[in-house]
Design a binder for these strands. Structure first.
Lengths: 250, 250
DNA sequence: ACCGGCTTTAATGTATACAGGAAGTATTCT
DNA sequence: AGAATACTTCCTGTATACATTAAAGCCGGT
C-alpha cells in the first residue's frame, strides 16, 4: 500500500534504477555480463526509455561499464579496487573535516552531531551488541557521516563524497553489518566511536590537520572490516555487492 | 572535411553533449536558466532522445542541475566553489601520487613522464614565453597530469580524478591560458615545472607523504592564477566558463 | 575437421507521438 | 486595485516504432 503509493510517486526512471541496482547488487547479473535493455524492460516492467536512463545513471554511479560497441555490462571490482575506494572516501571525508575545522563551525551546527554521538554511545554500551543495535548503528553512522561532510559547507566536495559513497562497498556503513558476526565486533565499534568523538573535538578546536588525519584512519576501519570478513568467510551474505568482487586470478 | 566524417562517426548523443557543453561554457545560457529540451533540439539539430541523454550526462558532469519539478538548469558556481574544486582535485591527485610512491613505479613507466618534463623545459626556457608556447604547455601539462594519475594504478581513483577534472575550471590546465597575460606568468610556470620535477623525484624515492604534499600545493597554483586573473580583470576572455561564476552577492 | 565468409538475428541508437502536469497569464470577484 | 482562480500553453516523462550496426550462427570451401 505504501509501496503502491510510492510506486506512483516516483518516476519510472527511478523505479528502474532501484530495481536494476538491487538486481546487480544481489548478484542477479554476473560481472562482465552484458545487461540487455530488452531483458531489463521485462524484469523492471517499464519501457525502454526509462530503462536506458537508469542504465546511464548506474554507469555514472559506477556499477555499470559502457561497452565500446554499445550497451552496458556489470562492472567487476578487484579487492584492491574496493580498498582503494575506501581510502578514497576517507581522503575526501578528511578534506571535508579539514575544511570544517579551518573554516569554523558554530555550536548550533555541531549539536546534531553530538546528539548522534550520544545515541551511538547508547548502542555500544551493551555487551554483546544485538543485531538490532547493529542495524540502528548503521543508520546513525550514516547520519553522522552525512552531517559531518555538510560541515564543510562545500557543495562541490559534498557532491563528490556522495558519489564516492554511492558504491555500497565504499560507503561508511558498507561493512558494518558484516562485522556484526565477528568476535572483535564490539571493539571495532568502540574504536570507530572514539574516532567520531575525536574528529568532532578536532573540528571544535580548529585542528584541521588532526581532523583530516583521524578521518582518514577512520575510513581504514572499513578496510580492516573487509579483510576480516573475507578471511573469516563467515556471514558473507551480509556483504552487499560481494558478487561484484572478482578474484585476483581473473 | 574531417568534421563531416567525425560527425558521422560519433553518436548523436555525443554531438549533442559537445554542442550543449560549448553553449554553456561560452555563456550562451545564463546560470540558473532552465534549459529547454525543445530549444536544445533546435540548436543541436538532433532529436529529443539524444538531447535528453546529453542533458543527463552533463548533469553528472556537474554543469547542469536537475530541477525538482523536472528538467535541468545551468549550474551557478561561486568563486568559493571553484577554489574548493581546485583543492579537491589537488587532494585527489595527491592521493594518486602517494599511491604511486608507496606502491612503486618502474623506470619504464616513469620514462614518458620525464620526456614530458623535458619538453616543458624547452618551452619555459624562452623569455618571454610566446602564446603558442603557452598553448603547447596546456597540452603537455594535461598529458603530464594524466600520466601522473595513471601511475597510481587505481582505476577507481583515476575515474574520480577524471570526474573532478571535468569541470573546466577545476582541470589542471584550466587557468594556464588566463595566466599567459600576467606579468608573473613565467615565474609561475617555472614554479609549476619545479613541482612537476619534485613530485616525480618523490615518487622515484618512494616518498609518499612528500609527493602528496607537493601535489596539493601544485594545485593551489591554479587557485593563485584564478585570483590573479580575477583581480587584474585582464584577458578574462581566456577563462572558460567564467560565465558560470556568480558573484557572492547573488 | 577447421577456417572463412555470408546470412540472419538481435540489440542498440534515434526519432516521434502521446499523456500528464506545472507554470504563466488573463480574467473575475472582492 | 489587488488577489485568487481558472484557463491555456508549454514542457517534461514515457512509450513505441524504425533503422543501423554488431554479433552470432550456419553453410560452404579448402
Amino acid at each position: 500500500m505504501a509501496d503502491r503509493e510510492t510506486d506512483r510517486a516516483v518516476s519510472q526512471t527511478v523505479r528502474a534504477q532501484l530495481a536494476l541496482r538491487d538486481l546487480i547488487l544481489s548478484g542477479g547479473l554476473r560481472p562482465g555480463e552484458r545487461i540487455s535493455e530488452l531483458q531489463a524492460v521485462e524484469t523492471t516492467g517499464v519501457s525502454r526509455t526509462p530503462v536506458r536512463m537508469a542504465l546511464v545513471r548506474l554507469e555514472e554511479e559506477g556499477l555499470l561499464e559502457a561497452i565500446p560497441s554499445g550497451g552496458f555490462m556489470v562492472k567487476a571490482f578487484s579487492e584492491r579496487d574496493i580498498l582503494d575506494s575506501i581510502e578514497l572516501r576517507g581522503t575526501l571525508e578528511g578534506l571535508a573535516v579539514r575544511f570544517a575545522a579551518e573554516r569554523g563551525v558554530s555550536a548550533r551546527d555541531l549539536e546534531p552531531l553530538k546528539e548522534c554521538l550520544n545515541e551511538i554511545d547508547g548502542l555500544v554500551r551493551q555487551d554483546p551488541i544485538s543485531v538490532e543495535a547493529f542495524s540502528s548503528y548503521v543508520a546513525l553512522n550514516a547520519r553522522f557521516h552525512a552531517l559531518l561532510t555538510e560541515l564543510s559547507r562545500s557543495p562541490p566536495l559534498i557532491r563528490q563524497i556522495d558519489r564516492a559513497s554511492a558504491l555500497p562497498f565504499a560507503s561508511p556503513s558498507g561493512f558494518v553489518m558484516a562485522q556484526s558476526a565477528l568476535p572483535e565486533a564490539r571493539q571495532i565499534l568502540l574504536i570507530a566511536q572514539d574516532h567520531h568523538r575525536v574528529v568532532v573535538d578536532a573540528i571544535e578546536n580548529r585542528e584541521g590537520a588532526r581532523a583530516e588525519a583521524i578521518m582518514r584512519e577512520h575510513a581504514r576501519l572499513a578496510a580492516r572490516n573487509l579483510r576480516l570478513a573475507l578471511r573469516n568467510r563467515t556471514h558473507l551474505d551480509l556483504l552487499p555487492a560481494l558478487a561484484l568482487i572478482r578474484s585476483a586470478a581473473d
